[in-house]
Design a protein around this nucleic acid. Sequence first.
DNA 1: TTGTAGGCGTTATCAA
DNA 2: TTGATAACGCCTACAA
Lengths: 355, 355
Amino acid sequence: MTKGKEITIYDLADKLRISSATVSRALKDDPVVSKKTRLKIAELAEEMGYRTNHFARNLRSKKTNTIGVIIPRINSHFMSSVISGIEKVANQSGYNLIISQSGESVEKEIANAKTMFNSRVDGLLVSLAYDTTNINHFDVFFKNNVPIIFYDRIPQQRESTNVIIDNQRRGYEATQHLIEQGCKRIVHVTALLRRNVYLDRFMGYKQALADNDIPFKEEYLIINDLSKQGGAEAAKVIMQMNPLPDAVFVANDDCAVGCMLAMKEAGIRIPEQIAFVGFNNDPVASVVEPHLTTVNYPGYDIGEAAAQNLIDHLKGKTSMTVTDAIVLRSELVIRASSQRKAASGSLLNKSSNKK
Amino acid sequence: MTKGKEITIYDLADKLRISSATVSRALKDDPVVSKKTRLKIAELAEEMGYRTNHFARNLRSKKTNTIGVIIPRINSHFMSSVISGIEKVANQSGYNLIISQSGESVEKEIANAKTMFNSRVDGLLVSLAYDTTNINHFDVFFKNNVPIIFYDRIPQQRESTNVIIDNQRRGYEATQHLIEQGCKRIVHVTALLRRNVYLDRFMGYKQALADNDIPFKEEYLIINDLSKQGGAEAAKVIMQMNPLPDAVFVANDDCAVGCMLAMKEAGIRIPEQIAFVGFNNDPVASVVEPHLTTVNYPGYDIGEAAAQNLIDHLKGKTSMTVTDAIVLRSELVIRASSQRKAASGSLLNKSSNKK
DNA sequence: TTGTAGGCGTTATCAA
DNA sequence: TTGATAACGCCTACAA
């Protein structure tokens, strides 16, 4: 058996003894076609199993109805939540998605961008790789007026439309919270500071220290890849410091958890000896013991917002030049890993699992 | 500024004073075109920024080069790993992906299938929703010879090509392991048994009991949605049983963890009073304490295998009727949550984190 | 080895 | 309100 012959608007037209033009119009619910014929055509289309040929349509109309998504990795809790949000919006609006992973490598990201361009996506949603410094590979989109929205990992040097959270403020709050718990020797574990999210969190950390007259110590800044494994290694380094730091603010939960487990294994009590704050509110945060204080970073909402904004723009509802940043709500979720004092401040919020 | 005019093969042809046909052939590296002209054309194409118009190509060739993916949820560790694997293979082979989430609802799944069909995907990768019982909504693909590969959640009643693991055997081993640890009152927490993965795991559980002359007790079978929350609720039920069961085999890690945390909170010691085994080897499994014994279910590999197989088939390399099941390797990963005896059996394997 | 020409299914323009 | 017709860019017999 072979694929059945496809029904085209000509088949419908012939059957009804009208022109293909009328069928085409009717199928788009063009009010210029009389209601009666529109109905007849719709019925016949249904009956004969007609389906639009998007290739012909796109060829003619020069619109692809496709959004490209470039993402570092799909399989992390945060990133898969983002995609989930994007998918929902795109699906609802009838847009297709082309998703590709950069795997945190600029080279791959450049290749991805090229593919996207060749696929003629109508718009692009991008979160940059760790080591992307310049974004010249996206110039071709800017030049051709293909809108790009960056989310989470955004470029520093260029004006662009971004969907983010206030990383700096959250970093500040996380640090301030630790200070309020009586911590003074606060280590910060993060990734390369060239990536905005990490730089911003670090800036917040530094500012909070400054505001509390705690000098920033270079040795308290540990840079790694923020993996669970990296966390375990950071733990080793931290445990050799003398005096032992009394708090660690880690830029993601995976790494924080790896660090906590290694310390616990070494017999260090959390939060009594060292308090912990992570970032992202991954599921592991409310499983590790003690439960990890962290910043709720709503990936699904980020995805939704980015996609919705892009689509609105594509449909001409909004001008991209008006908004250059959409900042979503995020908040510190305080759990046991950082609580060294009895409940006190206004920040306190004992929810053990926000999801 | 507006979008630049697109370069077509005609532009290239004019410039070189040759025919568009030759250009078309050269661009596909058709050996019938002389090497010299092929080179010239390639250079000019590069120089002028030519890019293939896939819509024209697809319209002509009637191939979409697109694979549809229907998935219950994107944002779970297992599922996002699957997608990651699919994306990698598809990207390498030049296929586009259309991904849509059924959200565990048949209605949505039916709608998704319809969309996929209208998008004329060349093939389909499907993991069924919880409550999908019949798969008539995919008949239209079978009828039109659009190949479908099911992965993870596969249909029972119909012949289809599947990518799976041996759920029954793993269920058996998990249970057998618990029995070897001295457990006799083993509760099984799972989801609706109409879904193959859960039914198979349950069958393995039951068989292991039988082989050890332990009668199966209906009340030891708890059905829920396998969420973390569901696990906490299951814990309540279990803790009211008298005598207290001495082991719980849960059909996924999320739920197992929820159950463990609730029990720990109630003061029950794990594994001394109750041993635990989960399923999937999610990241939480090696974070919860004690670390959770579980079955390593390699999502990324599943995605890779499913996509590769579909693409091979689409390219005519393999006939789909030959293979009707690809069974990937999976294994019990024994951790502390189930070990009530000193290390002994051959199954023992103390890796705390396979990732 | 290259060229000619028709058609893939839709939409848009113009005319009726 | 409808119809005829010419693109959209590419591919592929068939001819040269």
